[in-house]
Amino acid sequence: MPDITRRFGLRHLRSAPTAHIRHHKRGKLVHDGPGLSFWFRPLSAALSEVPVDDRELAVSFHARTADFQDVTVQASVTYRVSDPALAAARLDFSVDPDTGVWRGAPLEQLATLLTESAQQHALAVLARTDLAAALADGVATVRERIGAGLADEPRLPATGIDVVAVRVVAIRPEPEVERALRTPARERIQQDADRATYERRAVAVERERAIAENELASRIELARREERLVDQRGTNARREAEENAAADAVRAEAEATRTVRLAGAEAESVRAVGEARAAAQASWLRVHGDVDAATLNALAVTRLAENVPRIEHLTLSPDVVTGLLSKLAAPDGGEQP
């Protein structure tokens, strides 16, 4: 919408660069072009504003497939006005000289024209396509068909309209049909998930079995090594006992030999001592045999005195002294009557 201001009964128009302005004065074209700015008299001016920028038109409609299933088509058409003069001649783009507002609804007319044309070509291609094919490959097919149909539409060039691009966003069935179509896929996905779960469990069981087998093999090997260790310990103990027995036998034999030798030596020593004692005793007896009785008694008393313990006090009775004196006085040492 252009900006229109008032000054002293005149009007000043200023448009955007994307708006093509056509100004007729008394039936003659005075100003024609985009982004214009000029003064005009409202009573003698006829103004038209044609947008020349690219515009997006959202298209949504229902269609029926070859197997009588309703689908919803969501598309978008990009168009622009390539010939503003032709578009202004075919559609009402006139604006109010006081407010700059369109007197009619030209963009709605263009939207209706493009929507009906696109819907016509889409219905034609979907009516010959099954639902499964429409959902699988229908987007590309419908887009190509709508683009080709709009390019061949005679009313668009006659109105000065160029279609820039066509996009089909989605083709959707009814909610119940969509849920029904999703069920097999969900079932397959669930089956794949269950299969993966079972395979994972099988792999886990196989791994647990392998681990158990490894543990059992380790235990068997450990038991075998313990058996070898016990056998080796028994062999070592037996060998040690044999060596100890041999050492004890050698030691006992050496001890016996030493004992025998000691006993022989001791016996020889005892024999020699006995012979010496016997010889000494014989000599002592021979010497004493030649001595009289009084000398032997004196020797006996002397020997007795050597062996008697120390006497601190000695008490002699008259009877004892008399008897001793009598014995000493007797010539043969015997008792007198």
Rank of each mutant, 00 (worst) to 15 (best):
A122D: 03
I21G: 00
S218V: 03
A88N: 04
G35V: 03
L299C: 13
A249T: 05
S60I: 15
L86Q: 12
R80C: 02
E240L: 13
L91N: 01
A151P: 06
R238W: 12
E226A: 08
E116A: 11
P331R: 02
V164G: 07
V50M: 05
N244I: 10
D137N: 15
R155Q: 08
V71R: 00
A19T: 08
A263V: 11
R6H: 15
V30E: 04
A210I: 10
E116M: 12
V270R: 15
E335F: 12
A267M: 04
A223C: 02
A89L: 08
R277M: 13
R182M: 05
V230F: 12
E153Q: 06
T159S: 13
I21W: 00
P318G: 09
E312F: 09
V52W: 00
S44C: 12
R209I: 11
S37T: 03
S283M: 00
E176I: 07
A278L: 11
F8V: 13
D53W: 15
P84G: 04
S269P: 05
V169P: 04
A170D: 11
R195K: 15
E108N: 11
A280H: 05
P34C: 03
A196C: 14
H12C: 09
G104K: 02
E153R: 02
H62R: 05
V230W: 10
